[in-house]
Design a protein around this nucleic acid. Structure first.
Lengths: 329, 329
DNA sequence: GAAGAAGCTGAGAACGCTATCATGCTGCGC
DNA sequence: GCGCAGCATGATAGCGTTCTCAGCTTCTTC
């Protein structure tokens, strides 16, 4: 395990420099030397020390990923896409969960920096300050963007996605459409709310009291949905801002014995494995989750490769998938 | 970014050695020196270079994690538990997906070794050879164990868990109980099959033709379940070996318009977020997924800390959660 | 007041690698 | 024969830390 180039060199009867040259494939080396060095390298079980290499080459071949919680399927899919792209280029992903807490996020980014990652992909926590994003290695923001942080960012068309959902419900004749959402401090959430508002305002049907804001867990979603459905004049349809809210809304509807879509129509943002397993299957605004990670990885690798120029914002399209929960089928 | 101890020392008007001492909190340093070094460190924005530190200290404060696919909720939960434990001790997790392929797994482990992780947690791919597990840094196997790989391992009581599921179905009067499973090359799967067999043999009801083996994806689960349900004398109950198989079985039942639990009782291994959302809610053998990761992390940290002694195998308990899909309620 | 302990400091040696340089050696053309 | 390109090799200088050591100053103690 602790066999070094020096050990290999000694065993092969050449100098450290020569051994380094053949193992590192640079400079000259006689065929004889090559053969002997390779032979003793495999015999001794030599594994190049990436740490030492990183120190001199100033590149760790490592990229950092900061997400809220890898246990959230959205983040897991993102991580998968990212890791696929960067691993194909010899990079490895350092994973950190920040639990949607700006302070933990700051510390995580510091730790990654200290480890000298070549770049990082961050899903900013709600309320994150832009300071953490100002200097440091190349950074790509994902899903959300911090105000004033001039970095590359990869997101989906949140407003358009939300609007497509609400428009669909409007098209089905609903006039009281509620929204269950997490904090608008999250930029993607704010955009979804904006899309919701725009769609309703266009029809003169916007009622601010039908927006129920909660925390970002599933339990919070349940509470927020319950608050909305407990009202005397409850909405006939609900649009939820993310998968946790969707789950919470489903729970709330069940609690109140509301039948979907007869008593309540439902459209959620973000598709998941189980949305086709529930009855009725859920109508959703699907996001290209894997692509989010992949595109972020490509952006990052480009920057690491030296790409210059102003920050780029990439927006990926969402897609409304109509299934049973909105009553259209 | 590239400010080193040397730069800080210069700015503070002391030698590199003194600056290093105060920044590294070892040896002596006058109060005067401390103040000035800290001052210029923050002024210059000094971030210690973890790579250099790792080189001399021979510890990267990094642990590697090799899973099949982080997008699988089981692995995501494991990753979360592991990361929680090790991050609290200043470690960071290097994540790799091996896609259940021994060759990719081997390469991933090599890459992690080259990066000099202080330890690694591996969920061995089906068919993995033990060679990769023989030398190298401390290693903990998770969920499965490779034959002949004498490392610590953390798993659940697979056989007992499976048996509890099948016993439950037997208790409800079922006599034709099928099993949908992925490859028995996976040790945990093999144990679940063994548990299934044992329960049925005890009643003289074992029928090998009711075991439907497929691949490890959801689609494979569907195929395997369909094969079982298409038989002339189809089973009245099915036990599925993991969450993908459960999903597949649900799909197959729907295809054939079988009502659960009236036409078909179902018990799955591994609980998931959505199992209470489907109708009827699923009866499952629940695994302590987060604990698997946490315990593996603790084991690993203990070994990294120098714990000696023979390999330890830890088994965590499963729990049968009876809901509606088996017809007991 | 001398001896020793304790406080403080800078020089310098690793860690294991990459990469440059100077020094040979061979072969070729004139 | 000489010069010069091309090949091959070992010495050696970093990369940015950690940490030992020798040296110097200051304080304590008998």
């Amino acid at each position: 395990m602790t066999v070094t180039v020096r050990d290999v060199a000694r065993a092969a009867g050449v100098s450290q420099a020569t051994a380094a040259r053949v193992l590192g494939k640079y400079g000259y080396a006689s065929d004889e030397a090559k053969v002997r060095v390779h032979a003793s390298a495999t015999e001794l079980g030599y594994t190049p020390n990436g740490v030492a290499r990183a120190l001199v080459s100033r590149a760790t071949q490592t990229i950092g990923l900061v997400v809220g919680d890898i246990d959230n399927p959205f983040f897991a899919a993102v991580a998968r896409g990212l890791s696929d792209v960067v691993e194909s280029q010899g990079y490895t992903v350092l994973l950190t969960n920040a639990d949607e807490d700006p302070e933990r996020e700051r510390r995580a980014m510091l730790a990654l920096r200290s480890r000298r990652v070549d770049g990082m992909v961050v899903v900013p926590a709600p309320g994150a300050g832009r300071d953490a994003f100002l200097d440091g290695p190349p950074l790509v923001q994902l899903d959300r963007a911090v105000r004033g942080a001039a970095t590359d960012a990869v997101m989906v068309h949140n407003a358009a996605g939300a609007r497509s959902a609400v428009d669909h419900l409007l098209g089905l004749g609903h006039t009281r459409i509620g929204m269950v959402t997490d904090s608008p401090q999250i930029s993607s959430t704010a955009e979804r709310i904006a899309g919701y508002r725009r769609a309703l305002r266009a029809k003169g049907l916007l009622d601010e009291s039908l927006i129920s804001v909660g925390g970002s867990s599933q339990a919070d979603g349940l509470v927020a949905a319950r608050a909305l459905l407990d009202r005397p004049e409850r909405p006939t349809a609900i649009f939820t801002a993310n998968n946790f809210m969707t789950h919470g809304a489903l729970l709330a509807a069940r609690e109140l014995r509301l039948r979907i879509p007869r008593d309540l129509a439902l459209v959620g943002f973000d598709d998941l494995d189980w949305t086709t397993l529930v009855d009725p299957p859920l109508t959703v605004v699907s996001q290209p989750v894997g692509d989010l990670g992949r595109v972020a990885g490509e952006r990052l690798l480009a920057r690491i490769g030296g790409e210059d120029g102003p920050p780029r914002r990439v927006r990926l399209a969402t897609r409304l998938i109509v299934r049973g929960s909105c009553g259209a089928l």
